[in-house]
Write a protein that binds this DNA or RNA. Structure first.
Lengths: 204, 204
DNA sequence: GTCTATACGTAGATAGAC
DNA sequence: GTCTATCTACGTATAGAC
């Protein structure tokens, strides 16, 4: 308890969490509506100090998005590896994507919703990384088609785009305190994709 | 050909299309990355002149979003009225939503993707309008459940949120010059929602 | 209705002390 | 590594002439 009051901001040791504070703010308010002053404040620093770590506001955003891709890729890959049944695996991957996007970090949200804030140069890099992530989904779906779980006449690319779109948009309305759990939502999407909603005369 | 060269910007008569120029720019670059100077340039005006029509940059955005809601509502209502078959009607409404969002105007895109640029006060108004539009979809879906076309155990609200999400996200990747037509995409979504993608032993 | 001129704030960024 | 101090640019917005 020595030297406690009025501890200089510089001593509080916010070390590596500039990124997580920035991610939270970018998610809450958007990239250009968040100033470096606000980010610095959240880190108990002053604006100029941020430049010791990142060469520009955009460099910060880019680094944050890279981590977003890493995170969601890792989580979906882990889910994929955790089951042998292709249908159950799809369910787990859907829920992993939703969790990475909405629970485990703010970086995935920023990655998906703030990419228009990137300069043309940086955009190319990030889009490439995101495409790499999506290729993981392409693989999941194509495997299901090959294994005969999904009908062969279904367009795999459209299914991926539409399915991921349905999941991504959840981020615009999901309320952690609301009536739906994230897993409930994920399972719903999974059910609709697999079975559809139509009332059928004959069902197995 | 009298008095042709160096026609003053003020004489070009860009009358009512400040909104459409703004909508296009907001869509292409986002609200805060678009300056009033750019909007004015697109209208062959100077920044100050815009204030004759709109009291602030936000007032412009709000007006533009109002028109977005009006447009998409009208188009979906028209589609709804154009068929008596509930399943076909759903298909038409899905395609109407996509067309309003991606072909007929930039305002719907701005409505859906730039609402975070609104102040807290304006946001309430716009969200209310958007909710009103979504209630139209609630009606479409609930009618289908009542008529026994959609299974009664399907959560109508989740179906609406997920379905509209799948459609809205199309705006992030759709390429008019690409391999998919908008109607093709709409029909694909409609098919997945109704039938699912699973390979079934018995199919009608 | 549009222009001219400009006020005012705040943004991102930098240099050098500590 | 962070702070102090500051530069420069650009944003929205306003007042008054035309």
């Amino acid at each position: 308890m020595v030297d406690r009051q009025i501890t200089p901001a510089s001593k509080l040791g916010d070390q590596g969490n500039v990124l997580s504070n920035a991610a939270r703010l970018f998610r809450e308010k958007g990239f250009e509506r968040t100033s470096l002053k606000e980010i610095a404040e959240a880190c108990n620093m002053l604006p100029g100090s941020l430049y010791y770590r990142y060469s520009s506001k955009e460099a910060l955003l880019v680094e944050l998005m890279r981590r977003g891709v890493d995170l969601v890729t890792t989580e979906v890959e882990t889910a994929y590896a955790s089951s042998d049944d292709p249908v159950e695996r799809l369910r787990l991957c859907i829920n992993a994507h939703l969790h990475a996007l909405l629970v485990d970090s703010d970086t995935v949200y920023v990655l998906l919703f703030e990419w228009r804030s990137l300069s043309a140069e940086a955009r190319g890099d990030i889009i490439a990384l995101r495409d790499q992530y999506e290729s993981l989904w392409a693989e999941i779906i194509e495997t299901m088609i090959e294994q005969g779980v999904i009908r062969k006449d279904v367009n795999a690319r459209l299914l991926r785009l539409i399915g991921l779109g349905a999941l991504n948009w959840v981020a615009t309305w999901f309320d952690p305190k609301g009536v739906y759990t994230l897993d409930g939502i994920g399972d719903f999407v999974w059910n609709v994709i697999m079975d559809g909603v139509i009332r059928k005369s004959v069902r197995t």
